[in-house]
Design a binder for these strands. Sequence first.
DNA 1: TACCTCCTTCCACTGGGCGGAAGGACTCAG
DNA 2: CTGAGTCCTTCCGCCCAGTGGAAGGAGGTA
Lengths: 254, 254
Amino acid sequence: MAGGGGDRRSVARKVFAIADAFTGREELSLSEIAGRANLPLSTAHRLVAEWVEWGGLERGDDGNYRVGVRVWRLGVRQPTAMRLRRVAMPYLEDLLESTHEHVHLAIRDGLGATYLERLSGPAAVPAISDIGSRLPLHATGVGLVLLSYAPPEVFEELLASGPRAYQPGTITDERGLRRRMAEIRSTGIATTVEELTPGAFSIAAPVRDATGEVLAAVSIVAHVERLAEPQISLGVRMAARGISSALGYRAHVD
Amino acid sequence: MAGGGGDRRSVARKVFAIADAFTGREELSLSEIAGRANLPLSTAHRLVAEWVEWGGLERGDDGNYRVGVRVWRLGVRQPTAMRLRRVAMPYLEDLLESTHEHVHLAIRDGLGATYLERLSGPAAVPAISDIGSRLPLHATGVGLVLLSYAPPEVFEELLASGPRAYQPGTITDERGLRRRMAEIRSTGIATTVEELTPGAFSIAAPVRDATGEVLAAVSIVAHVERLAEPQISLGVRMAARGISSALGYRAHVD
DNA sequence: TACCTCCTTCCACTGGGCGGAAGGACTCAG
DNA sequence: CTGAGTCCTTCCGCCCAGTGGAAGGAGGTA
C-alpha cells in the first residue's frame, strides 16, 4: 500500500509551501494548509508539527495555526527592510504631513512590489496595501518604478507570467509597458490613474543607494480629484531624493 | 560513494537549522552556515540554494547570504507582535517622554524574552537589547515577569537548562528564583539590579489581555543612580496597565 | 444513534536526500 | 608563473527517512 513515490518536490520546498500558505491569511487549519500547499494531510501534519516545534508556526487555543514569533524575529532584522525603513521614515512623515494622503515605501520582491512602510492620513481612498503586502509591478506606481529600473530579465518574466488587467486602464501589453518604462526612466517619475483601484491615482519616484542603484520607490496614492496638484508630484520627488541622499547617493557623480 | 546513513535530523530540521544560523549575524558565508548548522558543506549548499530560490535567504554581491525579504514579509504580520506593538506604542512613547530612559516591550519566546519594541532616550546605560533580540528570562526584568506568570513547565525547563549567572548578583538557584517569582506575582512588579549589565537596573510590569493572561511585559532600564526615584516604577506600572486596558483587560473581573 | 468533518497515528515501500570526494574559482605569497 | 590555501560547486551510488493511503480518534450536529 501507499508509501514511496510521492510528489517530486523536495522536502524543503514542501516546508516553504507551508509558509506560503499563510500569504494573505492570518490563521489556517491543518486541512487548509494542506489544501493550499498541495500536500496530503498526513504529510502536512508532520511538517507543520516540525514548524511548530521550531517556533515558526504557533498553534492557537482553537487548534488553528498562525505564523510564529520566531519568524518575526528572524525577519525583523532583515538588513534591507530595516535600513531602508529607518532612513526613510522622517521623509515619509514629512510627505504625509504636507499632503495628508497615503504614503508608501516599497521594494521589488520577485514580480511584486512589497510594501515596507505605509503612512496614512484621513484619506478618502480605500487603501489596499498594508505593510508586508505585495502588489503587482505593472499596475502600481511603485511597481512601475521598480520594474523600470530592474534588470531586463525581470520584465521578460513579468511578460511570461501574463500580467493581469485589474482595471480597463491597466496596461499589460509589451509595447505599452516598454514605452511607459522608457518614459519613467527619462522623467524619473511614474503616474498611474485608476489602474488598480477606481478613483485613485498614484505618483511614484525611485530611491537610489550610494552606488546609484534603484532599490526602492516612494509613492502617494490619492483621489483622482487631486491629480492636477503639482505639489504632490513635487513632494514625492523631494522625498525620494531626500532618502536617496541619506543613503549616500550623490546625483551627477560618475 | 558515501551516501546513505547521514545525520538523524529530518530535512525540515536542517532547513530550520540554517535559519537559526543567522541568529545574531546579519551575513554569513556558506561555510559559516554549514558550520553553525552542523551540516556538511554539500548538504548546506543544496538546502541554502532552496532557501534562496524561495526568497527566504538572499545572496549579496559578495557571495554571502543574508535573511531575505520573504521572511520579513511573512513575519511582519505575525499577529501577536503586530497587535501588541500597535496597541502599546503610545503608552511606550509616553513612558519614554516622562522618564527619558530605555523603554522595552517583550514577550516570552521559549526560554527567552524577545524584545518587540525598544524606545531610547539619550540614556547613559549601554543598551544590549534591540528589537528582535532575545535575552534570558531569569536575568532581565521583563524576563522575570514573563517567567513568573508562565506555565510551571517553563520554569522546570529553565532550571534544567542550567541558567547562567551573568553577573555576581544574578540569581540562578531554584529557591531564590521561586521566592522572587512569588514576590513578583504578589506585587505585580519586578526589579533587577545589575543582574545582566553592571551599572544598570530595570523595573518591569506585566501586560494582560482580555482573558487576564500575561502576554507581555514592559520595562525601563536605567542607571542605578535613579533606582530610588518612585516615578519610574510608577510610570512602568501605569504603562503596563494602560496597555492591558487597551487590550481589553478589566482588573477585578471574574 | 448515525453521520459528518477534521485531526492524529500507523506502517511498508522506495526514490530523494545524503555527503565524501573531486574539480573549479579565486586569492595570495614567493 | 607556480604552488598552496580557501572556499564554493558538482557528481554519484547507496540506503534510510520520508511518504501517503488508510484506519482510528475526537468533537460536533441532527
